[in-house]
Simulated scan of single mutants.
Amino acid sequence: MNVSFRPHWLLAVALPLVLAACGDSEPDQRAAFKQFLQTRILDKPGVHVPKPTAEESKAFGDYSSHYAVITDFNGKMDESVKPLGNLVKTLSVRSLNDVIEHRNDLQAAKNGLNEMGEHLKQYQAEADAAHAKLKQPDDLKPVYDKAYDRTVSTPTNAFMDVLPQIDTAMDAISKVGDYVEANKAQIQINGSQITVQDPKVLEELNARLQAVNAQGKAVQEAQSRMQSVMFGR
Rank of each mutant, 00 (worst) to 15 (best):
K58S: 06
G46K: 08
W9L: 15
L11I: 09
G46S: 10
E55L: 14
Y63G: 11
L19K: 03
S25T: 15
K34M: 14
G61I: 01
K34N: 02
Y67N: 13
A54E: 12
D24P: 15
Q38F: 07
F60Y: 10
T53W: 00
Y67M: 01
T39L: 13
P52T: 03
A20Y: 01
F33E: 01
V18I: 12
L10T: 03
L11W: 07
G23A: 12
E26S: 05
S64W: 00
R40S: 04
A54I: 13
D43R: 08
S57M: 04
E26C: 06
L17N: 03
P27K: 14
C22S: 11
V69P: 00
K51H: 06
L15T: 09
S64A: 13
E56W: 01
L19R: 04
E55A: 12
D43A: 10
A54T: 14
K34C: 00
P45A: 05
K58V: 02
F60V: 09
G23M: 06
Q38T: 14
R30S: 08
Q35I: 08
A32V: 08
W9R: 12
V13C: 14
V18N: 04
F33C: 01
L42A: 13
A59Y: 01
P27N: 12
A21Y: 04
A31Q: 15
L19N: 10
F60N: 11
S57G: 13
Q29W: 01
K44V: 00
F36R: 05
Y67S: 05
R30Y: 10
R40P: 00
A32C: 09
A20M: 10
L15R: 06
E26A: 14
Y67P: 05
K44H: 07
F33V: 02
V69T: 10
L17F: 13
D28P: 02
S64C: 07
T53I: 05
